[in-house]
Amino acid sequence: MDGLGFSVTTRDNPTGRNPIYVKNVMNKGAAVEDGRLKAGDRIMEVNGIELTGKTQQEAVNMLRSIPIGGTVNLVVSRQDEPVLPRELPEDYAVSDVEDPRHGLTPRKTREYVTLEIPLNDTGSAGLGVSVKGNKSKVDGADLGIFIKSIINGGAASKDGQLKVNDQLLYVNGESLVALPNNVAMEQLRKSMSTDGNMRGSIQLVVARKI
């Protein structure tokens, strides 16, 4: 579907009759030029024909039948975007004197960034990052989950938006804020292995030192 400029995927078995989702919006093609379609959108109809009960191959065939230069009308369902937190709990912030690598830096020296990172074709590989749970040097309290390293060739490396030492706040709409590190790690794993594969991408909200 090079002309349309996006790929599709299903929740489970590609040969089964499962919901059809937009996996990736390519850098070239009608979809990126139009600007409305997003990775993770569920395609409900193509030119008035419902996709309920269709296999992935049937959906692909329908989309490929659109002539070059033609118009396609899509009806999609989109999950709500995760809400960027206006304020983090006060006890989650770190004092100015503590090493900023071990927690959120003072509020005036960080920014919140929302990222949509397409997964590789082998979505099970996930983001291609290693993470670490930081603790306070003062009292040993958990201070959140941070990006430790980005693996060359992985989804995050190819996308280029995520950075080492970014703090993960939300993953596909699920908050990691103020959770114990072990609970946050488990939530991160679940979000990336299930919802991420379904959407074909992973959405993150991170705190980043300015």
Results as ranks from 00 to 15, higher is better:
V46N: 02
N24W: 08
G144F: 13
Y112S: 14
L74R: 03
I66M: 04
S124K: 08
A59T: 07
N47W: 03
R86F: 10
L127Y: 04
I20L: 05
N61V: 06
M198T: 15
A125Q: 14
R101L: 07
R17I: 11
E186S: 13
I117P: 01
G53S: 00
P89L: 04
V183E: 15
G5L: 00
N172R: 11
N73G: 04
V8S: 04
V171M: 11
L119G: 02
I49N: 02
G40C: 06
F146V: 13
R64H: 09
N47H: 01
N47E: 01
L179K: 14
D41H: 03
P118R: 04
G16D: 14
L143Y: 07
G144A: 09
V131L: 11
V205I: 15
S77E: 15
N165T: 14
I68H: 01
K158N: 15
Q57I: 11
G196S: 07
G133F: 08
R36S: 10
V171I: 15
G103I: 00
P19T: 08
N182R: 10
H102G: 07
N73D: 10
I202W: 09
V171Q: 11
K158G: 09
D195I: 08
N61M: 11
V46M: 01
L104H: 07
G40Q: 02
D12A: 13
A93Y: 15
V183P: 08
V72W: 04
Q56E: 04
G154I: 10
V76K: 00
D91R: 03
G70Q: 05
M1D: 05
R42E: 00
N18W: 09
A125N: 10
V177T: 15
Q187C: 08
R86H: 11
V72H: 01
A59V: 02
T109S: 14
G70R: 03
Q79H: 06
E174Y: 11
I68T: 07
D99I: 00
K108A: 12
L176A: 13
I145G: 00
Q56F: 02
E174T: 13
E116W: 05
G29W: 01
N134T: 13
R11H: 07
G5V: 02
V97K: 09
N152L: 11
V83E: 10
V129Q: 03
R17G: 07
R78V: 09
G40K: 00
I150N: 08
L84G: 05
P180G: 08
G160C: 09
V8M: 04
N13K: 12
K135G: 00
A178P: 04
S201T: 15
M1P: 08
V72S: 04
L179T: 05
G35T: 02
V32D: 03
S191G: 11
Y92F: 15
Q57Y: 13
K132F: 02
G48V: 06
Q161Y: 07
G123S: 14
V177F: 08
E81Q: 15
A141T: 08
L74Y: 05
T9N: 11
G196Y: 06
V83Y: 00
V72R: 01
S77P: 00
G123E: 12
G153D: 14
T109F: 10
G69P: 09
G40P: 02
V177M: 10
S193D: 10
I210W: 01
G70D: 06
I210D: 05
E111G: 09
M198V: 14
A184Q: 03
L119E: 03
E186Q: 15
V177D: 13
N181E: 12
G69K: 12
L179P: 06
